[in-house]
Every structure is written in structure tokens, then in C-alpha cells.
Design a protein around this nucleic acid. Structure first.
Lengths: 108, 108
DNA sequence: TTATCATATGATAAGTTTATCATTTAAATG
DNA sequence: CATTTAAATGATAAACTTATCATATGATAA
């Protein structure tokens, strides 16, 4: 499958772990440990997903003492804010959508 | 996994088939057959994915004669345009990102 | 330099998503 | 209402993604 920028962009935040990480980082930079604590996720889970977000340009990390502190890149902040503004109106539509969980599969 | 509106929104367009469908529809409404022809995808593939997009409020379809014509919802058009404007600048970053294809897996 | 705490990486099993094939339903028209 | 063309649905195997566990690397300070 060929990768379009669109797809890559969307996919980066199309799962709950990364979505949650991004949401938290929108409130400010955090170390891996801080993210783990706040989200209740395992460390390697967070690190793996941070790597993915980093490679997609969503976040960047720099060492501060022993810990590595991650922040959203300015570009992505702008994008997310733009989406946010529009998602406010759109919200309702999505809430009633079970599609991605239920379609294309029967009663497995 | 609990579903956030964010995740649902992003996931809807996080695969190539749906991304392509949405891109095409940005240029105007199309029937299923037209989408199949232009994209070179199988009919059931397109229909399944349209259903997903429809349930997420991305598209809506109405019968015109024997065919069913799909269009993007106005709300989503706005969102996509907003993302588009920002993605222009961001583009470069994403192009160099192999993360979602390569990380978390070895040499399988 | 080694001990300690923080993060990253690798392998893998479990879970999810996808495309495909086969079949069914829908609309229109003779 | 039978036929034809268009689209939707269901089941399933293959592909992909994810979380987890085990381990390795990094940074600092004693």
C-alpha cells in the first residue's frame, strides 16, 4: 500500500494510546514516566508509541537529566487546534458511530 | 478500548482505500461504480468502505436511478480543508516517516 | 566505574482490520 | 413480474497493528 501524507498523518493518531498521549501533550511537555503515570499505561507501550509519533513529526523529545521530555511540535499543535475547532460541531455525528468497531465483522 | 471522537474521526481516514475515496469525493459526488472505475478497486471493497465512511458521517449517499451517488458531508469538507491548509506546510515531515510501516515489527 | 533510575528496543502472541469471494437486496425498465 | 444493472452484505483468510514481556542502552551521581 502506497502511503499518502494524509494517511500517515491520520493514522498516527488513529489509536487510543497515541491519541491519549497527544491529548496529554497538548497540555504541555511530559516525560515518559509522567505520561505513564497519568495515562496508566506501561512504559514500553508509551515508548513504542512515542517513537511512532516522533517519526511522524508529531512530537519531539529531549533529555533533561535522566528523563526524556516530549512535546508536540508547533506544526502539529496548529493542525490539532484547527481540527479541534471543527470537531466541536462535528462531535455528535461521531459519537453515534459504531462503524469502525462493528462493520465488516459479524459476530466473531 | 473506549472510543474518543478524535480516534473515530482519524481512524475513518487512516487507511488508503478510504483516504482515496474521500480525496476523490472532494472533487465532487460519485456513484459507487464511478469510484470503482477511477480508483481501480473492487466494488465490494468500495461499498464496505463507503459504509464505514457513511457511519462516521464523512459521506452520505442517495439513489439516483439505479446507482447510489455519494458525497462528502459539508462538515467534513470544512474539516478536510482546514487540515489541508496546514498539511501543506507539514508535508515534508510526513514524507520521511516510515514509522507506521516499520516500527514495532522486525524483519517478518 | 558501577549502581540506579529512565527510556528504548526486540520478539512474539493476541487482537484488529482488510480485501476478497459469494450471495443478496435494490431500482428501474421492458 | 422477470430481467438487468448497481450496490450492499456476510464470511473468512490474510495482513497488519498492538500490547506485553524481557532485555538493552542512556544518563547521572556516588
Amino acid at each position: 500500500m502506497k502511503e499518502t501524507p494524509y494517511k500517515l498523518f491520520f493514522r498516527a493518531v488513529s489509536n487510543k494510546t497515541r491519541c491519549d498521549i497527544v491529548s496529554l501533550l497538548m497540555k504541555g511537555p511530559k516525560s515518559v514516566t509522567q505520561l505513564c503515570r497519568k495515562l496508566g499505561f506501561e512504559q514500553s507501550r508509551v515508548s513504542h508509541n512515542l517513537k511512532c509519533l516522533e517519526m511522524c513529526g508529531f512530537v519531539s523529545g529531549k533529555y533533561e537529566g535522566k528523563s526524556r521530555v516530549y512535546s508536540l511540535t508547533p506544526e502539529v499543535m496548529q493542525v490539532l487546534n484547527a481540527i479541534d475547532r471543527h470537531l466541536v460541531k462535528y462531535h455528535e455525528h461521531l459519537k453515534s458511530c459504531g462503524a469502525l468497531e462493528n462493520h465488516m465483522k459479524a459476530k466473531r
